[in-house]
Amino acid sequence: TLFEALYDYEARTEDDLSFHKGEKFQILNSSEGDWWEVRSLTTGETGYIPSPYLA
């Protein structure tokens, strides 16, 4: 399933992933509550992002 970022986000820890509004992601793991592990389709990087920032 693909999701798109609604807002920009700046990583706060080394496990987080910074991203920009409009960036698209593949969800790798959504079992961690509000923090999902994703792969950016723009950069190929993986990390955790806050799920409320996605649509």
Rank of each mutant, 00 (worst) to 15 (best):
E4I: 15
E32K: 12
T13W: 13
D16Y: 13
S31H: 08
A5R: 01
E10P: 03
W35S: 05
E10R: 10
E32P: 08
Y48I: 08
G33C: 11
Y9H: 05
D15K: 14
Y7M: 07
G33M: 08
E23V: 02
K24V: 12
A55G: 10
Y9F: 06
A55K: 10
H20D: 03
T46R: 09
L28A: 01
E45K: 14
S30P: 06
H20W: 07
L2V: 13
L41Q: 04
W36H: 00
E32F: 15
T1Y: 11
G33F: 08
T1F: 12
L54T: 06
S31I: 08
T46L: 13
T1K: 11
I27V: 12
A11R: 07
F25A: 13
L41N: 04
E14T: 12
L54G: 07
L17N: 00
I27C: 04
L2R: 04
G33W: 10
L17K: 02
F25L: 05
A55P: 07
E23C: 06
R39W: 04
G47R: 04
K21S: 05
W35E: 03
A11F: 03
F19P: 01
E4R: 04
K24N: 03
E23F: 04
S30N: 11
T46K: 11
E45C: 11
P52V: 15
Q26W: 13
Q26L: 13
T13S: 12
E10K: 11
G44A: 01
F3G: 05
P50M: 12
E32G: 13
R39M: 10
R12T: 12
D15G: 14
I49Q: 00
K21V: 07
F3P: 01
E45P: 00
S40H: 06
Y48L: 11
S30C: 12
E14Y: 09
R39L: 10
G47W: 13
F25H: 00
S30G: 11
Y53E: 04
K21Y: 05
A5C: 07
L17F: 12
K24E: 03
G44Q: 05
Y48S: 03
F25S: 00
R12C: 12
L6S: 06
L6D: 07
K24D: 00
L41S: 02
G44F: 04
G33K: 09
K24I: 14
E37K: 14
E32M: 13
D8R: 15
G44M: 05
S30H: 08
W35I: 08
Q26D: 14
D15F: 15
D15C: 15
K21F: 12
H20N: 08
T42D: 08
D34G: 14
P52H: 15
G44C: 08
S40C: 05
K24M: 13
K24R: 10
G22T: 02
T43K: 01
G22D: 02
T13P: 03
H20G: 05
T46Y: 05
L54A: 08
A11L: 12
S31M: 10
L6Q: 08
E4D: 04
E10A: 08
E37D: 00
F25N: 00
Y53C: 13
S51G: 09
G33D: 09
L17R: 15
Y48P: 00
D8N: 07
S18R: 02
F19T: 03
S30D: 12
S30W: 11
E45N: 10
F25R: 11
S40E: 01
